[in-house]
């Protein structure tokens, strides 16, 4: 059972660094909502920064891969994501086709390398 829970300190960190930072913005939206214009310039900037942060996270997983993903060579990781993106564009933005194609490219490449 203690394996399942792990250590309580980590759960506290989860609440402080994970739960609260998200919930604050949601509840602020609930309390202050209405006063903010959907298309306002501030929101365009906020959305651009949020998108760029997410892009940074994607890049981090690819450039500094965690765990088992580190066993895949750099060029194969980038190539698989490029293949997935190409499939996504060719299928008129089907996320499903892109994800499947990227995964197949990586698994096939890894299998071929042995």
């Amino acid at each position: 059972m203690s394996d399942f829970v792990g250590d309580w300190h980590a759960l506290l960190v989860l609440v402080i660094a994970g739960f609260l930072p998200n919930e604050v913005w949601r509840m602020l939206g609930l309390w202050l909502g209405g006063g903010v214009d959907e298309g306002s310039e501030l929101l365009i900037w906020v959305r651009a920064v949020a998108t760029a942060i997410l892009a940074g996270v994607i890049a981090q997983i690819l450039v500094q891969p965690p765990g088992a993903l580190a066993s895949v060579p750099d060029w194969l990781r980038y190539g698989a994501v490029a293949a997935g993106f190409a499939a996504f564009m060719l299928t008129r933005r089907s996320i499903f086709a892109g994800v499947v194609c990227g995964e197949v490219a990586m698994v096939a490449g890894k299998w071929w390398l042995g």
Binding site: W25, G29, L30, G33, V46, R47, A50
Partner: peptide
Amino acid sequence: SAIRLFPMVV
């Protein structure tokens, strides 16, 4: 990163 939730809620 969570700031983007604010405009969504609003």
